[in-house]
Simulated scan of single mutants.
Amino acid sequence: MTIALPRRLLAEFTGTALLVTAVVGSGIMATALSPDDIGLQLLENSIATAFALGVLILMFGPVSGAHFNPVVSVADWLLGRRSGTGLTAGDLAGYVAAQVLGGIAGAVLANLMFDLAAVSFAGKDRTGGHLWLGEVVATAGLVLLIFALARSGRATVAPAAVGAYIGAAYWFTSSTSFANPAVTVGRAFTDTFAGIAPTSVPGFVLAQLVGLAVGVGLLAALYPDAGDAADQVVVPADGHESHVTRGTS
């Protein structure tokens, strides 16, 4: 059964918004609870994000596939072209728009919950080759993980696996693993722990697109028929409905 596009776009918008709310809100709370310990702040932020991502995939996966990430949606479209699976071009445009708008809405919601200005553009510069390399690594690994799970028939572990990967990548990448253009744009709208200066956003997004290319290339080498599984990363809604399920921070 094919779920209507408006329902899927609502799920992508809401899921991405709640993901960014979790990222930004937990960062604000972490700085309030542990004001003098940046390492503890990052630990609190990463744990909350990893748990929230897994839960959100379970919540919205049966409706839209819980991409929450333009990189994942583009990979789904690219890999499915040969076999006629995955998102259509029209679906892709809608998904990306919903995700970016959701990312911005999520940052605004987090700001308001903590009694901050609805929009305060971040002043935290995140730029440099080492950070961009971190984004390439984080994004490529995410794409490889998601579609490897699909191809190997282990889609049911996607919520835990993707959440665990993003939580770990907070710590093993120099950039703290944004790995998501929609989340990157959203985080520019909050001048808090998780913020990124608007001038740093293009570099991060470009690095994420490079990571997408690397991830797709690795999939082509390791799983040549990965495109056949573009519709197979599944969190079943019931015995009749299921949809691709993929997510990221």
Rank of each mutant, 00 (worst) to 15 (best):
M1A: 13
T2E: 14
R7D: 08
L9W: 06
L9P: 11
L9V: 06
L10V: 13
L10W: 03
E12I: 08
T14V: 09
L19T: 10
T21M: 10
A22K: 02
G25Q: 02
G25A: 04
M29L: 15
A30K: 05
A32G: 09
L33G: 09
L33Q: 14
S34R: 15
P35Q: 10
D36C: 10
D37E: 10
L42M: 13
N45S: 15
I47L: 14
A48I: 10
A48M: 09
T49R: 00
A50Q: 05
F51A: 08
F51N: 05
G54Q: 01
M59Y: 11
F60P: 04
V63A: 11
V63S: 12
H67G: 08
H67M: 14
V71I: 15
V72S: 07
D76H: 14
L79Q: 15
L79I: 15
L79W: 13
R81W: 03
R81Q: 11
R82M: 14
S83V: 10
T85N: 12
D91T: 08
L92C: 05
L92S: 06
L92Y: 05
G94Y: 05
A97R: 10
I104P: 06
G106C: 02
M113E: 11
F114A: 06
S120D: 12
A122H: 08
D125G: 01
T127P: 02
G128C: 03
G128Y: 01
G128F: 00
H130P: 11
E135D: 06
V136S: 00
V137H: 02
A138H: 09
A138I: 15
T139K: 01
G141N: 12
G141W: 10
V143D: 02
F147Q: 03
A148T: 15
L149T: 08
A150D: 04
A150L: 07
A150H: 04
R151W: 12
G153L: 11
R154I: 11
R154Y: 07
A155H: 13
T156R: 13
P159L: 02
P159D: 05
A160D: 04
A160L: 14
I166E: 05
Y170C: 00
W171C: 05
F172V: 08
T173I: 03
N180D: 00
A182Y: 00
G186F: 05
F189T: 00
T190G: 12
F193N: 04
A194F: 01
A197F: 03
S200D: 03
S200H: 06
V201A: 00
L206S: 04
L206Q: 05
A207F: 10
G215L: 08
Y223V: 13
P224Y: 13
D225R: 14
G227N: 07
G227P: 01
D228C: 11
A230Q: 09
D231L: 06
Q232K: 15
V235H: 10
P236H: 05
G239Q: 03
H240M: 12
H240E: 15
E241H: 13
S242D: 09
R246C: 14
R246D: 15
